[in-house]
Each structure stands twice: as C-alpha cells, then as structure tokens.
Amino acid sequence: NQASVVANQLIPIQTALTLVMMRSEVVTPVGIPAEDIPRLVSMQVNRAVPLGTTLMPDMVKGYA
C-alpha cells in the first residue's frame, strides 16, 4: 500500500508547508504520495487542513 501525505498539525489557510507539518501514512482514500513531501515544502495550502487530514492535490497551490 502506498503512503500518502497527512497533516501532522492544523495547517492554517495560506500557510507555506514545512517538513514538520507533514507525515506519511497509509490511508484511504489515497492522497498526495509521500515521496512528494520534498516537493511540497514551501508550497501553500489553499484551505485550512485539520490534524490527521490527508493532503489531496487540490489542497496545495501549484501542486496539481
């Protein structure tokens, strides 16, 4: 099973992502693949992302 990127904390809207905000976890449905974590650093979320939420491509500006 492929690991996805999951929020390690509440990430407020417009926040630039850092490594400490994300973790990898095998979840359903599958979100952004964990191997993309380095690419996500400094990208902004376009909505508030609660703790434990799987990051989906449409939540990160410039990802999809």
Rank of each mutant, 00 (worst) to 15 (best):
A3M: 11
I37C: 05
L19S: 06
Q9F: 14
M21D: 03
G52K: 02
N46L: 15
N8T: 13
P33W: 11
L10S: 13
M59V: 07
R23Y: 05
M43N: 04
A34W: 08
G31R: 00
M59C: 06
T18C: 05
M43E: 04
A3T: 08
L10W: 13
D36H: 13
P29D: 05
V5T: 06
Q2W: 14
I37H: 00
R23E: 04
L40F: 02
T15M: 09
L51E: 13
T54H: 02
V45N: 01
Q2C: 08
A64I: 12
S42V: 04
A34S: 14
P12R: 09
G62W: 10
Q9D: 06
M22Q: 00
K61R: 14
S4R: 02
S24K: 14
P38T: 12
K61M: 12
Q44H: 11
V45P: 00
I37N: 00
I11M: 03
A7S: 11
Q9V: 09
T53D: 12
M56W: 06
Q9A: 08
I37E: 01
L40N: 00
Q9H: 08
P50F: 08
E35G: 11
V30N: 11
Q9Y: 12
S4W: 03
V60L: 09
M56A: 06
D36S: 10
V5W: 03
V20F: 15
V45D: 03
A3S: 10
A34N: 06
I32L: 04
I32D: 01
E35K: 08
T18N: 05
T54Q: 03
V26R: 06
M22L: 13
K61W: 10
G52M: 04
Y63K: 02
R39S: 09
D36V: 08
T15Y: 07
P50E: 13
L55K: 00
V41M: 08
V27W: 04
V41G: 00
V49A: 04
L51I: 10
G31N: 01
V6M: 03
S24M: 07
N1P: 15
D58V: 08
P29R: 04
T28E: 15
G31V: 00
V60N: 01
Q9L: 10
A48Q: 13
N8R: 09
T28S: 15
R39A: 07
L17R: 00
R39E: 06
P57D: 06
V30E: 14
Q2L: 15
Y63T: 03
S4A: 03
